[in-house]
Design a protein around this nucleic acid. Structure first.
Lengths: 158, 158
DNA sequence: GTACGATCGTCAACGTGGTTGTCCAAATCG
DNA sequence: CGATTTGGACAACCACGTTGACGATCGTAC
């Protein structure tokens, strides 16, 4: 109680949050690489998640991710080249190109979910399940809900 | 105790950590822009911090940030152009180009520290100071110490 | 039925940030 | 003194984002 805030400089908090995020993502992709998905990048998992089971279009994907339709289209191109997504014509609208996850994409998504669960369990084993729950609850209270913007590289970089 | 992990899917944890990091950084730069630093990007603060009060060289900066000397040099170029850093010759080694923060750079750093303190205080007001302390302590236990890699865009993106 | 506006996808140009490879100049070492 | 190491810069490239422009297609209003 006699410890003012000067004991805890504010700049450490974002650093620790970033470090936490990054270790989780790094561990995930190290494990995914071991499980046959060495080409999946951190961004790709979010994109696959955003495409979802029903498929979508590049424009809609851009809206979901908070990026332009052009950027979304380019990312889809790369994931198509890697075999995680596929394009198809929309029979009801010749302008639209449907984007769907392939079998490989579904496999990557399934494995990602499993690894994330394992990583969370590892944190719970270290910190206690209640502490991890509390961390999530607290973060939810200080961050906007429905947070799903993926313009991180551009945002972080420039 | 009767609630298995399925109640808390693991993929939310990294999302919440990222959201927490990002809201802090976004709020910081919105405030910095208001205080006369509209050109400071999220990355720049970390770079200025890494340059430090004593100055350094591009190669050393790259080592501190975990990026190549070329990448560090390019970032220094941009910060020099923005007036936050300056180069000088090393009188004792003609190969080395010293990199120092300018007055403007120091001002940005000082304001950043102040805003980070305010943001942390805001979290403490919402969650309770003990919860924020606990979050930091917990994160420290599950992340490598001395974590200061700044290759985030390249790491996240490619 | 046709003309018009909105929408989808793509192409092009550009900016930021990262990488590797190459090379020169300067310092250090034998 | 010559040989090696080191610092900085240049070039080419990749991943990711942006805006602007432009066909092709759809829906609608007339």
């Amino acid at each position: 109680m006699a410890t003012p805030e000067s004991e805890r400089p504010g700049f450490l908090l974002p650093l620790l949050l970033l470090a936490g995020f990054r270790t989780l993502i790094d561990d995930l992709h190290a494990e995914l690489a071991r499980q046959g998905h060495p080409d999946l990048r951190p961004l790709h998992g979010f994109v696959l998640q955003a495409v979802g089971a029903d498929g979508t279009t590049a424009t809609e994907l851009g809206q979901r991710l908070g990026i332009s339709k052009q950027a979304a289209g380019k990312t889809v191109d790369r994931l198509v080249a890697l075999g995680y997504l596929e394009r198809a014509d929309d029979p009801r609208d010749a302008r639209r190109k449907l984007v769907r996850t392939t079998e490989r994409g579904v496999d990557g998504l399934r494995r990602s979910a499993a690894v994330f669960d394992q990583l969370r369990a590892r944190w719970a084993a270290t910190l206690g399940a209640d502490r991890v729950d509390a961390m999530e609850d607290d973060l939810r209270r200080v961050t906007p809900a429905h947070f799903f913007r993926l313009d991180v590289p551009g945002w972080f970089g420039g």
